[in-house]
């Protein structure tokens, strides 16, 4: 399988790329930092015995660069079977409320620019007869909640887009996968206290690969979060207004 990963320099994306590489898939890495990309490419080569087909700069806050980055990936891989987007940003509600510039960047990176990137990838995949688009949204988008008013809204919009895309294009060969991780212990959450059912990036990555292989359109991972979110979605507004999470 030929896989293109945006966000493989850290966290869930790094674990995913290592596992795909280890099972023999051919990778192309996209990211915003040349030196981090270079080091991650070397890491995959040293671990898996085979280097990625290449890497290129792609910054989710600079959509004008998407086409060039995707051109480079398609050129290096020839055929692309799956496009994976794990890049994304997070800020606590307090941080984002107090920093408009940071909020503006996060809204763009997580929502509008991720969708612009996916639209470009969608066209290319469809033109080649189909493939898989796998994007990381979040359980934070499932219900309006106090601690994730702003971050959660980007993920809510993203989940909506990903579901609709799957309905619209599956018949033409494009499978769209919306991954909703619960709390995962990565650099993104390092300053937060892990709740029960916190997951490790390695096991989350395993779940994601299985979803890609099977074409599962919606994945909650770690599994327990499917149940947690089902309950939270059922809570009446009066309760949501009162509780802290």
């Amino acid at each position: 399988m030929n896989a293109l990963v945006l966000g493989a320099t850290q966290g869930i994306g790094q674990a995913l790329a290592r596992q795909l590489g280890a099972r023999g898939d051919t990778l192309f890495l996209l990211g915003r930092d040349a030196s981090a990309l270079e080091r991650s490419a070397r890491d995959i080569e040293a671990r898996c015995g085979r280097a990625p087909a290449g890497y290129a700069i792609c910054d989710l806050s600079a959509p004008e660069g998407f086409a060039t980055a995707l051109d480079a990936a398609w050129r290096a891989l020839g055929r692309v079977d799956v496009v994976i987007v794990t890049a994304g940003q997070f800020g606590t509600q307090e941080e984002l409320e107090n920093d408009r510039a940071r909020l503006a960047t996060m809204l763009q990176v997580n929502f509008s620019n991720t969708i612009l990137f996916c639209e470009d990838a969608r066209e290319r995949l469809l033109a080649a007869g189909g493939g898989t688009l796998c994007v990381l949204s979040s359980v934070a988008g499932d219900r309006g909640r106090k601690p994730v008013v702003l971050y959660g809204s980007t993920k809510a919009g993203l989940s909506y887009y990903l579901e609709a895309l799957d309905h619209a294009y599956r018949s033409r060969g494009l499978v769209t996968i919306c991954v909703k991780p619960g709390f995962v212990k990565t650099g993104m959450t390092a300053a937060l206290k892990p709740p029960p059912f916190a997951g490790e990036p390695e096991s989350v990555a395993r779940d994601i690969i299985r979803a890609i292989d099977r074409g599962t359109p919606l994945l909650y991972t770690p599994r327990a979060w499917a149940l947690v979110m089902r309950i939270i979605r059922l809570l009446p507004r009066a309760v949501m207004r009162r509780i802290g999470f």
Binding site: Q10, R39, R42, D43, E45, A46, R47, G49, T186, G187
Partner: peptide, 29 residues
């Protein structure tokens, strides 16, 4: 969390990595 392998020479065993790489990972690999 800083656990990238930067190279491993399968001829002579020379290995370079970020300082956070664990012995557990080395053994698994």
């Amino acid at each position: 969390r800083a656990d990238r392998l930067l190279f491993f020479n399968r001829e002579n065993g020379a290995l370079r990595a970020e300082a956070g790489l664990s012995l557990k990972t080395l053994n698994e690999l």
